[in-house]
């Protein structure tokens, strides 16, 4: 270290990194840098499309944007979005209800739980998407088969979360209540259910994303409406612009959903103990 003026702190006390780096790391600097990166990628894509790479394979940002505007204008975007969100919402509610109910019931009956667990674990290990063809045959190409696929995906997440919650209940607490003379029903109502609630909420929060994925995958495998159908139908017509536009809608949905969930999580955490 060389001579340092006594009246000023050395540079490295603030930050040892070069000035440009420090500039990038300020709040506005970060936003600008990120926008710049995205801008450069889009620009490169636009310029490369039709010159370096055939437009047929990669489409171009401007074409994708135009397609999106067209979908919004002719109302087809809303029609498809509605179908996807409806399948997701209805399936989610059904899956949550059955999942929590089954989880609590098995939680109350450890013996039955131990008997059924291997069968449930086997079903759980099956990739859910494989059920899509079966559901399409059983429930038709319409929204019902997607609802079923979403419901079974969410069902398993809630089932396992609820069971984990019940399992996490302190055995000493159960014993203490038993000693007080509580009946099994009272133990369930006063201890197991309230103690399991946080786990159930966590499961509900996590499974929102899985519900969306399941709905869209179901539509990709076979449907006549929905964002997933939009993507698959465009691909079937060798229409890359449509595929990208569909994926973009999906990205926007996912990012919005994640953002909403993060907000919900922080606000509930603030309200909690």
């Amino acid at each position: 270290m060389t001579a340092v003026p006594a009246d000023r702190p050395t540079d490295q006390d603030i930050d040892p990194r070069p000035r440009l780096t420090r500039l990038v790391l300020t709040t506005t600097g970060l936003v600008v840098t990120r926008l710049l990166i995205i801008g450069v990628v889009l620009l490169a894509w636009e310029l490369a499309s039709g010159t370096l790479v055939p437009k047929f394979w990669v489409s171009s940002p401007s074409a994708i944007f135009a397609r999106l505007v067209q979908w919004i204008a002719d109302g087809s975007l809303w029609r498809h979005l509605e179908a996807t969100l409806l399948a997701m919402g209805v399936g989610y509610v059904i899956g949550c209800l059955i999942g929590v109910a089954t989880g609590l019931a098995l939680g109350f009956m450890p013996f039955v739980q131990r008997i059924l667990m291997p069968y449930l674990a086997g079903l759980y290990a099956l990739p859910k998407i494989a059920l899509a063809p079966l559901f399409i045959i059983l429930f038709g190409i319409d929204i019902e088969s997607k609802i079923a696929l979403v419901a079974i995906t969410v069902f398993f997440m809630l089932l396992y979360n609820t069971l984990d919650g019940v399992r996490d209940v302190d055995g000493d607490l159960v014993e203490a209540l038993e000693l007080m003379g509580a009946t099994r029903r009272e133990i369930g109502l006063k201890l197991l259910i309230p103690a399991t609630l946080p786990w159930i909420f966590t499961g509900m929060r996590i499974s929102v994303r899985y519900a969306l994925t399941a709905a869209i995958l179901g539509e990709v495998i076979g449907a006549n409406r929905g964002i997933g159908y939009l993507i698959e139908a465009s691909a079937g017509q060798y229409n890359t612009t449509g595929v990208y536009a569909g994926v973009l809608v999906l990205v926007i949905c996912c990012v919005t959903l994640t953002e909403l969930l993060t907000r919900a999580e922080t606000s509930t955490r603030r309200g909690g103990p």
Partner: peptide, 26 residues
């Protein structure tokens, strides 16, 4: 890492399996 984090998180939130039709096209 700091610069790219939100972009990475956004990408992570997208179910990439749904890229399947595009990949089959390619």
């Amino acid at each position: 890492a700091t610069v790219l984090r939100p972009i990475i998180v956004a990408l992570y939130s997208v179910p990439l399996i749904t890229m399947a039709p595009l990949l089959i096209l390619w």
